[in-house]
Design a protein around this nucleic acid. Sequence first.
DNA 1: CTCTAATCGAGACGGTACGTCTAGTCTTAGT
DNA 2: ACTAAGACTAGACGTACCGTCTCGATTAGAG
Lengths: 201, 201, 201, 201
Amino acid sequence: MAKSPLVVTDVPRGAGRPRSDAVRAAVLAAAYGLLLETPLGGFSIEAVALRAGVARTTIYRWWPTKGLLAIESFLDGFKPKLSYTAGDDPEKAFRKLLASLARALSGPDGRVAASVVAQAQSDPETQRIFREQFSDPLRVETSKLIEAGIAQGRFRADLDVPRVIDAAVGAIYLRLLLGQTLDARWADSLADMLLGGMVTR
Amino acid sequence: MAKSPLVVTDVPRGAGRPRSDAVRAAVLAAAYGLLLETPLGGFSIEAVALRAGVARTTIYRWWPTKGLLAIESFLDGFKPKLSYTAGDDPEKAFRKLLASLARALSGPDGRVAASVVAQAQSDPETQRIFREQFSDPLRVETSKLIEAGIAQGRFRADLDVPRVIDAAVGAIYLRLLLGQTLDARWADSLADMLLGGMVTR
Amino acid sequence: MAKSPLVVTDVPRGAGRPRSDAVRAAVLAAAYGLLLETPLGGFSIEAVALRAGVARTTIYRWWPTKGLLAIESFLDGFKPKLSYTAGDDPEKAFRKLLASLARALSGPDGRVAASVVAQAQSDPETQRIFREQFSDPLRVETSKLIEAGIAQGRFRADLDVPRVIDAAVGAIYLRLLLGQTLDARWADSLADMLLGGMVTR
Amino acid sequence: MAKSPLVVTDVPRGAGRPRSDAVRAAVLAAAYGLLLETPLGGFSIEAVALRAGVARTTIYRWWPTKGLLAIESFLDGFKPKLSYTAGDDPEKAFRKLLASLARALSGPDGRVAASVVAQAQSDPETQRIFREQFSDPLRVETSKLIEAGIAQGRFRADLDVPRVIDAAVGAIYLRLLLGQTLDARWADSLADMLLGGMVTR
DNA sequence: CTCTAATCGAGACGGTACGTCTAGTCTTAGT
DNA sequence: ACTAAGACTAGACGTACCGTCTCGATTAGAG
């Protein structure tokens, strides 16, 4: 794992005590744990420091805002097992992808994602990083999968892929943010509906 | 407009000094104004009280949490001009509806909506009210519009209407929450994509 | 008992609902009870109103300040059984008087007196009433008793009676206010000391 | 002057930013000033913080209750010039001592003392400290002075010294707390009366 | 036997201070 | 140069009372 995907740390490495990786890991783990367990806004630098057994000052040195700490811990700890395996049946692959995303966000980790999105509303920097580091990569992978289906002639050639992704991901997030269940049946019916306009006839 | 959409106030008017409607209006206006102008989390009861020229305690008397104040001010102040006019062309009507929703959320009022959704992540009660008082009614109207199209035979009879709405509204919200532009062109391309699977052939 | 020793109520008595004596009594009793039970500053108009089952406004109508309510309830409720019986032995009478005052102030009622004196430090009006309605009458009675002793030739003719009272009462109050025990033995030793300079030889 | 007469601060000096003595002094001075100038209960932590130019939280860190702040500022600021000089005439020394105590308490500083005693009525801890840090030392010194007189044979050998002090100090406090003048003439007449029973014949 | 005027109860309202929590900054000592 | 510890400024939190106010309901005596 790289030191930090968000902060450039390629300084030539001068003298002095080197940064403790143990501290960084402890902080991120504590932050993620707090986001997991206290959905009701109990996420404070104070609490993270206490749980990580780390001085508050140390956190401030490395993470300028609460939002950036939250999102880095999210990127560090949230590893959804998404199914990008195209296989030979693009419809099935699309269906599986939506289902795996819904499942990943339906549990407690989903609350973390929702918290991060909420944080991002009051911090453009957090918003940008969420988009670039989490949202966009996911879209790229999904794009590839759909375009494979187009190449196979199974999906319509004139399909507006980015819009499909907007709709699919947006629907999932909306349910997450409104506190509604994200079960497999629902994910499947969403895939059904979207595929209705995607498949060639 | 009724006194309050959230609280039942049909008590037969007992003794005691009656609640001042001027105060209620001033607080809600101040709250909405703050949500509009200070996107960066500057929404505090303190600030609302100051701006409304009202005692802080008065706010606490009527709004138990920040979230409930935020959402009531949102419901009171956010009146999107949505186009539910079915007309005789369901496709056009659907297109117009999506466009009007996108437009309504693209301006500063959209930031208010985003803030409210963010607040709702740390307050289930706020979340519930947002869903019941804002989200659901909008879905019902949209449903009617789509079903009119089905009745006219212009939309597929087996259309999964709730899923279509999930996708449409979800896509719009996603862009809003990720801080991306919500222009007419984008809304139109979204409508195109969805209609691709909705219209009969 | 007169309506109120503190407030003039000799208005000509026009029309309208007359003041309820039940309310007055309930308030004073509640106030005294609170002063008895919550020595730690838990004496608020709010609490008195609640305990008396009376509207807060009603209290404000009749008692302009907290101090005046406190002292009126004290005067109304604190009825020490002081021994002013001169008898034929002035020494014994003096001794008994000091003992009875110490005993009266040693129990919970003593805490009430201390509270009132404390209140009086931030309200000159309360201070004045305490002096005039409680302290001075007690001094007058004590004076008589001592002067009877002088008349009998048992106490020194040139005795500075007010100073003796200052010393006796002051010593008792000091112990009360410093939270020290006010037992009979102590009261007796105080009387001994004072009599040492009072009796003729 | 030691750091604090109330709190032991002999810890070996660990890590962390050291406590600012400037802040401590500013707070105590502000507190004493408020006690001096606003006899009518205007002594609030809020006001002290404002006057001292210090954050409210800093005060709470070091002084758990209002009473303890009041008394520490009193002990820090009230330095009566008491006359404990025995000299060769015990009567004169006793007289001077009473006069100097009365004078010290007759001015605005006397109001501070009264306020502190009032505060102590709703806070046993404050009461205890007042007794131990202010009252008792004063008694010890007075004791010495009187006992010197006994040793010289000028005061009665069987004199109950603590009771004499109770009477003398109590009388002074009583007048202070009842808002009566504490002039030299009065102090002298008190001394006269007490000495009447103290001197040998 | 109604009118009328004061009371009492109820509760909203603008305030002040409370004591707590968290955010950030700063200043030391230790590694 | 980093970490740990902790003092400090700043300010919002939610609560408790304060004292004022506006009502409705009640309760006598006066007309």
